[in-house]
Design a protein around this nucleic acid. Sequence first.
DNA 1: AACGCGCCCTGTCCGC
DNA 2: TGCGGACAGGGCGCGT
Length: 274
Amino acid sequence: MPELPEAETIVRDLRSRVVGRRVERVEVPRPDILGPGLDPARMDEVLRGRRLDGVERRGKNVVLVLEGGIRLMVNLGMTGRLVAGDSPRAAELRHIAVLFHLDHGHPLLFDDARRFGRMDVHTAETWPGRDAELGIEPLSDSFDADTLYRLSRTSRSPIRNWLLDQTRVAGVGNIYASEALFRAGVRPQRPANKLTKAEAARLRDALRDVLQEAITARGTTLNDYRDAAGETGGFQFALRAYGRENDPCGACGTPIKRIVLSNRSAFYCPRCQK
DNA sequence: AACGCGCCCTGTCCGC
DNA sequence: TGCGGACAGGGCGCGT
């Protein structure tokens, strides 16, 4: 569910709520969301007593940075939420998987109905390797048109699938892939290595624009996404293609089409996107 | 080695 | 009202 803008919204929310706090105790009622080698006892042992020094984002992942260079990487999957326990909305959570008890008296909660979310612990030694497995950040200065063009040369996959691959560009999911391709005028099924330089340049701009606008709107809530206060986002009202099958294209009026690529929906305007 | 597929799991919605 | 099926923002492991 949550893609880059949703993760970024949560990260910004969490900074003011947890940075500087100390972890007193960790509870893991749903251990199946822990990554390989992790169990509830190990989670508590590694995190207990450590101060939270910062909150970062890498792609769609929320990264809690703790004293001593320990990093807890949280992948929210489809339905994962990180919600401050003192938020009035916290009482509505029905699938709490992890509770981080903090020294200001209320926990940070990880809730995940489908339990597709994952948490992994990294040290200063293991983190660079994990970080390197993820692709370029689309909002970084180095993500320019040439870079996107060059990265796309090695793949014959449909460009929509290519955008979902976190090892190439990190943070784009199904919603923003459809939205960016709509804005760039490129069909989702176009082979990545068939994009022209001009199309790659338009796609680069479209990705940055739509991701930045979605961050400003505090993310897209279709069903499950919530920010760290447990509140919904606002970008669902600005979607032009995703979820709009048969609606008239905002530019030309042609009905938006839905196709399935690799078992996942893609939405596009058959007239505007080539 | 790149790629598509099935699967993980729960909730919701729609048609009958 | 109940039930079965389709579908959902992600990502991993597998076979080809």
